[in-house]
Write a protein that binds this DNA or RNA. Structure first.
Length: 916
RNA sequence: GCGGAGGUUGCCGAGCCAGGUUAAAGGCGACAGACUCAAGAUCUGUUUUCGUAGGGAUUCGCCGGUUCGAAUCCGGCCCUCCGCACCA
């Protein structure tokens, strides 16, 4: 469909406010939402899929008599927008080029510089892309009610979020405590994935080491390990041969660690401090006592010890660590490897076997040593058991022992947890990234038992498509525990009870769909009062009484009452539709927050979870350059083609592959549809024959299936039925010599209505061209619209198709090119016999017919009484058959008894005459 | 490892929950034919295999089981994909 035609209808829909519903008690309501997008750039085909599917559902429900609300708003909270803006301010080339590319799609080249300049303010990025997304979505014909648009940065919304957090807190679901975070040393601030260079490609995670104290006379030596369970096998200690060491004081104890480690310890343990330098000569001159074994250990210098990893001190376990084994050999350290873990099953790996296998003799083979270490770590972790030399830990699995020994070390003050980054990382600004422990991190405590119970109850009541996600939701909710809900930086709402913290961006977006129902009133109240007081939000959403808000004046009270009514009319989102990666985060928060804050009747009713979109089999990502923006789609392919493609090319729950050849295939079908619709023509005097009757019945069947499948949210199945199958039927009808204009015009009105949810622009245009008034988008599709399904018409055509297939099979098997085809149909007498036999009334058969019973049994599965007058069906299609097989076709009634084959109902005898 | 999904005919992808109507929808691709000067588009047929009569044989990851009957139900095994957190 021409772009200008699509734009015409989009404008008409907007001008007539077609999709801006109000309360209407005469209709059932239907509210459908898709999670709001984050507005740091243009959206691509992947986002478009979920909104398109939601729109098709919204449009269908509207046509089924529901009062449909499909609203949308924008998410602007969090750090990415802030970080991007900062990078543009700092002149980061990669970011600037990326945004310039984005802008090229929308803007005249001469405007780009000034827009880029405006992006130095983060809120401008957010508002710019919000506006673009609205345009893009309109260009795809979505029936979104934009009057309810707002953003997570709107002051009235933030007052709503504050109310939410006060409520959560009053229910005892908010707490604070210590928490490790990634941290930038120079910026003295927590950092997220997008602040770290290559953080998106190569993720940085936090690892928990156990710092183990080896007691000495003046100070202890603090080694850090991921494998505390190997402590019984320790033979000596290593320090770096190139690092600087200091004495750090932690909770009254003095430890020698590398200078780098001291900095990390200080960030992780409040009150700890460096008290002096210490030379490595001094460390080496001393002996230190190992925990558990109490052996006195010697310290050596080693090249493989990295002062910037862990504490810069390593305890040596040559029996279970490849590095240590290679090091004692290379340095000639007098140590004997000790085995403290034995492995049952597995690959039978040991340090020695790995060293021999890979020929490791030098610490400079670091790549190979790392690989060997990894393999051994895995083997021992999953299949290892502590042997008898491990004191109280003997016999435990490695996993049990690790935890038990760590606990023992901590409680006897011989160790503590030390956090380290999983790889060396720096911020995009170049500052080193380490792990710091924040002392007053705020959490939402999702582990509270009553809350989990309420959530499970809600999950049980909800609708799911596909159904198996119900179970996945139960699992996701069980798995949630305390979640940090606030950060030190980023855009968003400040925590009402501690304004130094900004509510984290997923936590501020859990119950926001409720605001769609009454955004206008809330905004207006905020304008009047300059804020949205907690009392009023409580009145609208919670349990407040009229008296509790009466002092705000009549206008405010009326607005609040209206907001409350709207909430109670619309809320409870009927369908929330999104892709599966949201399940274990957004959707579980969505469900749990509703379970905590809303009464049953306002809780979510259903979820539809979709698959992702890939492009030519590859994951879509901006860095690969295969992200096609939505604007490009509307202009390059047309909205309706995209919508049809999304609806038909994959089931909602599976991955959709976006590729040109598939799009072209859909385009051809779409063009065929238009071409067929163009052939519709009223034929008032035409009397339908068998094949037209068949088509109409088939169409009605497809229509019925369409409605059933759409109601079950099987969009793809519905469209295959009403689109592909109907087109195929029309093709068949044409080849059969049926009357195409008559047939199409008989169904066109209903057909256009059925297709309207998927290709609304095309259907509006067709609707108008057919002389209809009003919008097809708000027409109804009712069960009563479906005409009669004439079983005998269907049976007759089925009979003919089977006959054609049989003739073809015979021609194929015998390779005869027939000069003529003789068809002899079952006689009335034999038909009666067949009927008797089908009903097991064998005894009633006359003696003359009894001999045929054997033949009946043989052919039973092919015998079908569905067609009354077979000869008539064939005679009326004789021309078609003769044309098809390029020979004459003779029909006669079969006269059994003369020998040869017997014709049964649904099973005429076919004979091919050879060419002379 | 934990949790979830899945392995279907050249490919994509239905069917499986409610066993028979299923050699298995629909699409793509391939091949043949019609149309055309030709190509493209469109239409028709074929697309596991055997067959001189509409039939037979063997198929739905592998091995067993239940059943008159299994792609569909049950058990075991092999393999693949996805999520696992503070990040939107």
């Amino acid at each position: 469909m021409d772009r200008s035609v699509e734009e015409k209808w989009q404008k008409r829909w907007q001008d007539s406010h077609l999709f801006e519903p109000l309360q209407d008690e005469s209709k059932p309501k239907f509210m459908i939402t898709v999670p709001w997008p984050y507005t740091n750039g243009p959206l691509h085909v992947g986002h478009g899929r979920t909104y398109t599917l939601a729109d098709i559902i919204a449009r269908f429900r509207r046509m089924r008599g529901f009062n449909v609300l499909f609203p949308m708003a924008f998410h602007q909270s969090g750090t990415p927008i802030l970080a991007f803006s900062e990078r543009i301010r700092l002149g980061d080339e990669k970011t600037i080029n990326q945004y310039r590319d984005n802008l090229m799609e929308y803007e005249e080249p001469e405007n780009i510089d000034s827009i880029m300049e405006s992006f130095k303010k983060p809120e401008n990025i957010a508002s710019y892309f919000s506006d673009r997304i609205v345009k893009d979505f309109n260009s795809l014909g979505y029936s979104i009610d934009w009057t309810r648009r707002f953003t997570s940065a709107d002051p009235f919304y933030q007052d709503f979020v504050k109310w939410q957090f006060e409520r959560l807190r009053s229910k005892g679901l908010i707490k604070s405590g210590k928490y490790p975070v990634l941290y930038s040393v120079d910026d003295a601030n927590a950092v997220g994935e997008d602040d770290i260079s290559d953080g998106d490609i190569d993720k940085v995670t936090i690892e928990e080491y156990t710092a183990v104290a080896f007691r000495g006379d003046e100070y202890s030596l603090l080694a850090a390990s991921l494998r505390p369970e190997t402590l019984f096998g320790v033979t000596n200690l290593w320090i770096s041969d190139h690092g600087d060491y200091v004495i750090v004081k932690v909770e009254g104890e003095k430890y020698a660690v590398s200078a780098e480690a001291a900095q990390k310890i200080i960030l992780q343990h409040e009150g700890s401090a460096i008290i002096s330098q210490v030379s490595s000569d001094d460390i080496i001159s001393r002996k230190f006592t190992a925990p558990f074994t109490q052996s006195r250990l010697t310290v050596y210098r080693a090249s493989f010890v990295d002062p910037d990893n862990g504490t810069g001190v390593v305890y040596s376990v040559p029996g279970h660590a490849v590095w240590d084994y290679v090091a004692i050999k290379q340095y000639g350290v007098p140590a004997t490897p000790v085995k403290v873990i034995s492995v049952q099953g597995g690959e039978g790996l040991t340090v020695e076997s790995l060293v021999t296998e890979a020929g490791l003799s030098d610490l400079s083979d670091s790549g190979k040593i790392k690989d060997a270490t990894q393999r051994l770590y895995r083997e021992e972790f999953y299949s290892g058991r502590m042997n008898d030399s491990n004191g109280p830990f003997s016999g435990m699995t490695v996993q049990q022992a690790r935890e038990a020994m760590r606990q023992e070390l901590i409680s006897s003050r011989l160790g503590f947890i030390f956090y380290e980054v999983s790889r060396k990382a720096q911020t995009r600004g170049g500052s080193k990234v380490v792990v710091a422990v924040l002392n007053d991190q705020w959490f939402i405590d999702y582990s509270v038992e009553w809350w989990k119970q309420e959530s499970h109850d809600l999950i049980r009541r909800m609708y799911y498509y596909p159904e198996f996600y119900r179970n996945a939701m139960h699992e996701a909710v069980d798995w949630l525990r305390e979640r940090p809900c606030a950060r030190r930086r980023g855009l968003g709402t400040r925590l009402p009870f501690n304004s130094e913290w900004v509510i984290e961006s997923l936590s501020d977006s859990t119950i926001y769909p409720a605001v769609y129902t009454n955004a206008a009133e809330m905004k207006r109240i905020h304008e009047i009062l300059g804020k949205l007081p907690e009392e009023i939000v409580e009145y609208i959403y919670g349990s407040g009484t009229d008296e509790s808000v009466s002092h705000y004046g009549e206008e405010v009270v009326l607005l609040a009452q209206s907001a409350r009514r709207n909430l109670h009319y619309w809320y409870g989102v009927d369908i929330r539709l999104t892709a599966h990666p949201h399940l274990s985060n957004h959707l579980s928060f969505y469900v749990m927050n509703h379970a905590a804050l809303f009464p049953k009747e306002l809780q979510p009713r259903g979820l539809i979870i979709t698959g992702l979109v890939v492009s030519n089999g590859a994951k879509i990502s901006k860095s690969k350059g295969n992200a096609i923006s939505l604007l490009k789609i509307a202009t390059r392919y047309s909205a309706d083609l995209y919508r049809l493609f999304v609806a038909v090319n994959a089931d909602m729950s599976s991955t959709l592959d976006w590729n040109e050849s598939e799009i072209n295939a859909v385009r051809k079908r779409y063009e065929t549809f238009l071409e067929l619709m163009g052939q519709a023509g009223r034929q008032d005097r035409f009397v339908p024959t068998q094949v037209e009757k068949w088509f109409l019945s088939r169409f009605n069947q497809h229509m019925k299936e369409y409605i059933e499948r759409m109601e079950g949210n099987d969009l793809r199945g519905a469209i295959i039925s009403i689109f592909y199958e109907v087109i195929n039927d029309l093709r068949y009808l044409e080849n059969r010599g049926g009357n195409l204009p008559y047939s199409i015009s008989s169904v066109s009105e209903l057909w256009v209505r059925a297709m309207a949810p998927v290709i609304p622009h095309t259907c509006e245009e067709l609707w108008e061209k057919a002389g209809k008034t009003g919008f097809v988008s708000v027409e109804q599709i009712l069960d009563g619209d479906i005409g009669e399904i004439d079983e005998s018409a269907l049976a007759a055509e089925r009979y003919l198709q089977k006959l054609v297939q049989d003739i073809r099979d015979i021609i194929k098997a015998t390779k005869i090119d027939p000069a003529s085809i003789g068809i002899s149909v079952c006689s009335g007498e034999m038909r009666k016999l067949a009927q008797m036999l089908m009903e097991d009334r064998v005894s009633e058969a006359t003696p003359r017919l009894k001999p045929f019973i054997g033949d009946f049994m043989k052919n039973r599965k092919n015998i079908d009484l569905g067609v009354e007058d077979e000869a008539m069906v064939i005679r009326s299609s004789r021309q078609y058959l003769e044309k098809l097989f390029q020979c004459t076709v003779n029909i006669e009634e079969n006269n059994p008894g003369k020998g040869g084959k017997v014709a049964w109902p649904g099973r005429p005898v076919i004979s091919l005459a050879r060419q002379q």
